[in-house]
């Protein structure tokens, strides 16, 4: 599959005028997998594909320095490909200027505390139902694990996974749940790795970095941590595609993906909306509509 991927990228360099291919490579000091930016067909062999490719590479699509490298080809797991759809829907990228190489993914392995790869699935992959990428230009690999998650089957397909993952939170009373998040957020050091790793946190200047007025407390206090994490979750409501990049990047191990999933699940339950499955979808929140079912909006 790795060879299939490399051949496909070479082909794109040759025939589609691609200037840079964003993919996974062994870039860490100890051979850890991270993002590589291949600008020449000669370097394509740097690309790897295995069950350690955790990052969501779509985060690089909005960076001006990457855009400056020319036409982009990007390697996307099925979850990451949904982020590309959202980015295009939100006018951050021009989809036609981009080649999305979707890779079939049967789950990414977790990392042990010592940095080595565990034989267990990464938590968000445990209940994942999307193994075949949708809305991509090329699909690499095959699987028997089901169909691509597109607008048609998204609603049904994601339900079971959500329920399983949220079961833990739902079993708690409101007080227990609050205490749970209190404990989680108390570990936050406000490094903003969650924001930096998230493809949908693309604002030129984050509201957390604005100080006139200071809308949230920037100190790593419990109050400021609550404000930051809840604010980020709200900004991702109806947008988060559940790639888990934030939780993966969090040095404190806060289960940020659960927080986002709660809102994603609400979006689905109440509005039948699954982010990143429909090309051209209007944002779930904040679309003015004369026929809004809320009678008080006229």
């Amino acid at each position: 599959m790795e060879n299939e991927l490399r051949n496909a990228i070479r082909e794109l360099f040759a025939n589609q005028g691609v200037g840079v291919a964003i993919g996974y490579g062994r870039v860490g000091v100890d051979g850890a997998v991270g993002a590589v930016f291949v600008t020449s067909p000669d370097d394509v062999d740097q690309l790897v594909w295995n069950n350690e490719c955790r990052q969501n590479l779509a985060v690089h699509l909005t960076r001006p320095e990457v855009k400056a490298l020319g036409k982009i080809a990007i390697v996307c797991k099925p979850c990451d490909a949904r982020a590309v759809v959202v980015l295009a829907n939100e006018a951050q990228i021009k989809r036609e200027d981009l080649v999305v190489v979707g890779v079939v993914c049967e789950g990414i392995r977790n990392v042990k505390p010592d940095g080595s790869t565990s034989d267990k699935d990464y938590p968000k992959c445990e209940t994942c139902v999307q193994h075949v990428p949708a809305n991509v230009d090329v699909v690499i690999g095959e699987t028997s694990k089901g169909e691509a998650l597109d607008a048609k089957n998204a609603e049904v397909a994601t339900t079971a996974g959500h329920q399983a993952k949220l079961a833990k939170l739902r079993a708690m009373s409101a007080e227990e749940r609050f205490q749970y998040w209190r404990d989680e957020f108390s570990r936050c050091v406000r490094c903003y790795a969650c924001r930096q790793s998230c493809p949908l946190c693309y604002c030129n200047r984050c509201v957390a970095d604005k100080n006139r007025p200071a809308r949230i407390d920037t100190s790593a206090s419990l109050k400021g941590n609550f404000a930051w994490n809840i604010l980020r979750a709200f900004h991702l409501a109806g947008r988060c595609v559940g790639c888990g990049a934030c939780a993966s990047a969090c040095p404190a191990g806060i289960e940020l993906d659960l927080l986002n999933l709660t809102l994603a699940n609400a979006a689905k339950e109440h509005f039948g909306f699954v982010a990143g499955t429909e090309v051209g979808a209007a944002p779930l929140i904040g679309t003015y509509d004369r026929d809004d079912k809320e009678e008080f909006i006229r």
Binding site: Q92, T287, Y288
Partner: peptide, 15 residues
């Protein structure tokens, strides 16, 4: 305009 990311949220929300 320096800081706007042009995400279009305001465009769609404006009545």
């Amino acid at each position: 305009e320096k800081l706007c990311a042009a995400c279009g949220a305001c465009v769609k929300a404006c009545p």
